[in-house]
Simulated assay, not measured.
Amino acid sequence: MYEPIRTKSVHTTMAGTPSDFPHRSREEELDIQLAGHLAALLAVTDELRALVPSDDLDTAAERLAAEVARLRGGRTALRAAPAATGAPEALHRRAHALAGRALVVAASRADTAAAILAAERMDAHAAALAEPKELSTAH
């Protein structure tokens, strides 16, 4: 009824035969994921710094860049010159979401420094979103 399998499976290897492709440990995969989330958060932070300069955002950007470099074995994050356009609220929402993702990965990786940084950034962006907005008075 069924035709026998004629080709070797791509999913298994022979016992004792080294694999032809590199494998990463779970820890390495989580490092890559965490570095990616923090690098994305750094990019959004740079965008916010261009729109609403503040010492808090400057410090956060420095700390994020240091964490990305640590996770990438000393390689610094690429940083583009941000365009000073866009809505700060949307950027704060995006940054909050990215910080949340970074927090989840940092927690599963048991990386206390990255988890604390991500939680602080989540709090800062949540606070920025909660600030009362000025109402325009049209006469």
Rank of each mutant, 00 (worst) to 15 (best):
T112R: 15
H92Q: 13
G73K: 12
A110N: 08
R79Y: 01
D55F: 06
R26D: 13
A107W: 11
D111W: 03
L42V: 03
R101H: 12
H11V: 07
D58V: 11
V10Y: 06
A119N: 14
P18E: 11
P53T: 05
G36M: 05
M1D: 05
A84H: 06
D111K: 04
A119I: 02
V104P: 00
G16F: 04
R6P: 02
E120L: 03
I32M: 08
T59Q: 11
A40Y: 02
A118Q: 05
E27C: 02
K133Y: 03
A126T: 09
S25L: 11
A127D: 15
A128L: 11
A39P: 02
K133D: 07
A124N: 04
S9G: 08
A69N: 02
A128S: 14
H11I: 07
G36E: 05
D111Y: 03
S54K: 13
P22E: 14
E67H: 06
D111S: 10
E29H: 07
A126F: 11
A87R: 13
V105G: 03
A102K: 02
E89N: 09
P82S: 09
H23D: 12
T13P: 00
D56Q: 13
A113Y: 00
T7P: 00
S54L: 09
A127T: 15
L30Y: 11
D111R: 05
A77H: 04
S19N: 13
A43I: 04
G73S: 13
S136A: 13
L135E: 10
A15Y: 02
A60G: 03
V104G: 00
